[in-house]
Write a protein that binds this DNA or RNA. Structure first.
Lengths: 248, 248
DNA sequence: CGAACGTTTGAGATGACTCAAGCGTTGTGG
DNA sequence: CCACAACGCTTGAGTCATCTCAAACGTTCG
């Protein structure tokens, strides 16, 4: 039940019944966190990892003026900071964006799992590498796309991830982020995010209002953000696939 | 001998003698590759991973106009595309930048290792998460730093990584990249990279000429790029540490 | 009702880009 | 051994995307 969305709809790693039972048994506690709360800080030694059950969380790095760069967001089903199991400490901070519920898994349990069940351990490894693949897509976004492309790419990605988790129908989903959050994700200013959102709205590509994203033209939005869902390793991703179109 | 530099000087994961022997035994072949050769393409099913022994390699994503964004570079000691073991296919291309030598490790061997030696398997996992930590630093670089900061940050990072591998004295190292490579790494144009390099040279922070990087003022360079080596998990990183200074 | 927060819009500044051209070095074939 | 092509580096001039600063408006919540 806690693990219902974990690795859901990912190619080649569907969890067997026994594995799911084992993972459920590893949960020591369920916690609720308010919106905008820090959960872990860079450098702290950690002894547990957390499965996100509900809510949106973020991982970020601060610059020397106190501005943030988000390096990841997490949606329900993600195994948060599983990275801290091999690494022991994190290189970044983790915080909630919206109010969230997490299932706590002590590292000692993951230890036990990796000795008992190499196949399940490999699926946990896979989950962390999916995060790395998403990091790479974010690098592409920041390095090669203009402001409109970055927002378009992010919205397509989030649509796809929520679709895999069963939280988007492929066109429409709840997302309680502010324009300032989008700015910290896309390396832009809030003001400019606002102008881009207006443009996307006026062109009919996407409307983001009252914590609801409605994609008007997925094909055009994906083209604008040069988005291809391949890196998310989603099984049955037909509703997300679009014809590749030339840029602009 | 192939694994001499693998995880060298990383906190908490020094390889035991027996582990090193096991890993050496897993190498099926050693290959040489010329400069600028593609080694693996996105989407291809892979059945082996490679330990980089000598040379510089890159991982990149193409945009729709054929421009590249590099998402990682690899230096000797890195386990290239170990990601492909859990993921089966990669989401990006891998290519040499300079002529390189690699030790091939079949996935079947990694499979055997993860059943036989959970502790060593966890060190392999750790190595892939180090890549992810570096991705996050690159995200910070692209999202929050200006052109000069990006180049400064990249040069500090590369200095630190080569230092860990025993290939930099902490101030001076060989690096056979072109300004066009730096542009693809930092999300800039070649022309602008050239202007930034001149500026760094004129300010005495760093000279990059004839495939040799000489850092004139590491403290100032690190401050300019807001670089802190923590995310590289390097043991005995004193020569790399600098006082944190306000930006600019 | 007022404070806090998020969104929206305008005007002007600027960092990085584009286009264009020249220079130096290296490697190769005649 | 020279000529020339290929490549990488360098510089200039003009343009444009995004930022900064500033202010106003709407909504929510206590």
């Amino acid at each position: 039940m806690f693990t219902e969305r974990f690795l859901r709809n990912r190619r080649g790693v569907s969890l067997e019944k026994a594995e799911r039972v084992r993972l459920e048994a590893a949960v020591s506690e369920v916690r609720s966190l308010g919106a905008r709360k820090t959960m872990a800080r860079a450098g702290e030694p950690l002894h547990e990892s957390n499965l996100l059950i509900d809510g949106i969380m973020s991982r970020y790095l601060d610059d020397r003026q106190g501005l943030r760069q988000l390096v990841a967001i997490h949606v329900p089903g993600d195994f948060l900071d599983l990275h801290s199991f091999p690494l022991k400490t994190l290189d970044h901070d983790v915080a909630t964006l919206t109010a969230s519920t997490i299932a706590v898994v002590p590292h000692s349990e993951i230890d036990a799992i990796s000795a008992e069940r190499p196949a399940l351990a490999r699926k946990l490894w896979y989950a962390t590498l999916l995060d790395a693949a998403i990091h790479r897509a974010w690098l592409f976004r920041l390095g090669r796309l203009d402001a409109t492309g970055r927002i378009a790419h992010f919205l397509c990605e989030t649509n796809a991830r929520l679709f895999a988790a069963g939280l988007s129908d492929g066109r429409r989903f709840a997302l309680a982020l502010t324009q300032a959050d989008l700015a910290e994700i896309c390396g832009l200013t809030t003001v400019h995010v606002n102008r881009v959102m207006r443009q996307l709205r006026e062109e009919g590509l996407c409307v983001f209002r009252a914590s609801l994203v409605e994609i008007g033209d997925l094909e055009a939005l994906a083209a604008r953000g040069q988005f291809d869902p391949g890196y998310l390793y989603i099984e049955n991703d037909e509703p997300l696939r679009t014809r590749k179109r030339p840029f602009r």
